[in-house]
Design a protein around this nucleic acid. Structure first.
Length: 297
DNA sequence: GCAAGCCTGACC
DNA sequence: GGTCAGGCTTGC
């Protein structure tokens, strides 16, 4: 599933191969993936030139321009199974291809494919884009340690949920959230507000490291990643905890455990990520206690 | 039946 | 305001 590193990879790919190209034609094959009326979507993009490509968190946006008209932005959310690919116009149309855009004269085509249709596309003007992006917290990869610590302040829910909350910090999904917590040796139910500053900084570094590694590898294996969807083997990175329930921790051999937090499965090592005192024994983030840091394995 | 990201609505 | 359950979708 696409998280920040995958979106970053797509962004780089578009910058490399689609900048300066004209959107000659737009075809919406499934209207459900377009936010707003699809006729307006098509009209607002057709005949415009791709001027820049960027992302914030998992949101990708393509700036398109036409002489004498205000800028517009194609905003893409890949959701869970969304794919944005650049291929030849003649290439066979794969199932669940919902949008096609003919680019330039070279027979290239940008395609949006999404089996589960959690992803979507929309066309926004500059002000709308600003509002849209303002709803997101700082980008997980570009945030400074100060911004990261500030975002954690006053948060009392599970730190796992916080990491995945795009309004708090933009870019992490379930996989990298689990992996970053493991790297920083933090229990997924710990409360952000009660995590010691040194530990919070360890988490900041873990997030940076996990994302950087993923970006570095997806850059070369993205194609494979797209092809093999939904299997643990698809990741270039060796996962330490994600979907390894019952398997031995790669660090200490304890059995990896799984708990459901806010409806999402969370994987952690009970020895490397000890339960903080402020978390009650069986479940529920609410309990009395101190902010003590337990020792790691 | 489960998994995912994200939105809506309910709760305190 | 923060927090969280539920629902969407479909292949395994």
């Amino acid at each position: 599933m696409p998280e920040l590193p995958e979106v970053e990879t797509v962004t780089r790919g578009l910058k490399k191969h689609a900048l300066g190209l004209n959107i000659a034609a737009v075809e919406v094959r499934h209207h459900g993936v377009i936010v707003g009326p699809s006729e307006a979507f098509v009209e607002s993009l057709r005949g415009r030139r791709i001027q820049s490509v960027d992302r914030k968190g998992k949101v990708l946006f393509v700036e398109v321009a036409r002489d004498g008209e205000p800028l517009r932005y194609l905003v893409v959310r890949l959701g869970m199974t969304g794919q944005l690919t650049l291929q030849s116009r003649e290439a066979a149309l794969e199932p669940h291809t919902h949008v096609r855009m003919v680019l330039g004269e070279g027979g290239k085509e940008l395609r949006f494919r999404d089996v589960r249709r959690f992803g979507n596309l929309r066309s926004l003007d500059r002000a709308e884009l600003a509002t849209f992006l303002a709803r997101l917290g700082p980008d997980a990869q570009r945030a400074t340690p100060e911004e990261f610590l500030a975002a954690m302040r006053g948060r009392h829910g599970a730190i796992k949920s916080w990491l995945m909350n795009q309004q708090a910090l933009a870019g992490l999904g379930n996989i990298y959230a689990d992996e970053a917590l493991f790297a920083a040796r933090i229990h997924p139910l710990a409360q952000p507000a009660r995590v010691a500053t040194v530990t919070a900084l360890a988490l900041y570094r873990a997030v940076q490291k996990v994302l950087a590694q993923a970006v570095a590898r997806q850059g070369t294996s993205f194609r494979d990643y797209l092809d093999i969807e939904g299997r643990p083997g698809r990741f270039a990175i060796k996962l330490k905890v994600y979907q390894r329930t019952g398997e031995p921790c790669r660090r200490c051999k304890a059995k990896i455990r799984r708990v459901v937090i806010a409806g999402r499965s969370s994987h952690f090592c009970p020895r490397c990520q000890p339960r903080p005192r402020h978390i009650a024994k069986m479940r529920g983030p609410r309990a009395a206690g101190r902010v003590t840091r337990a020792a790691s394995c």
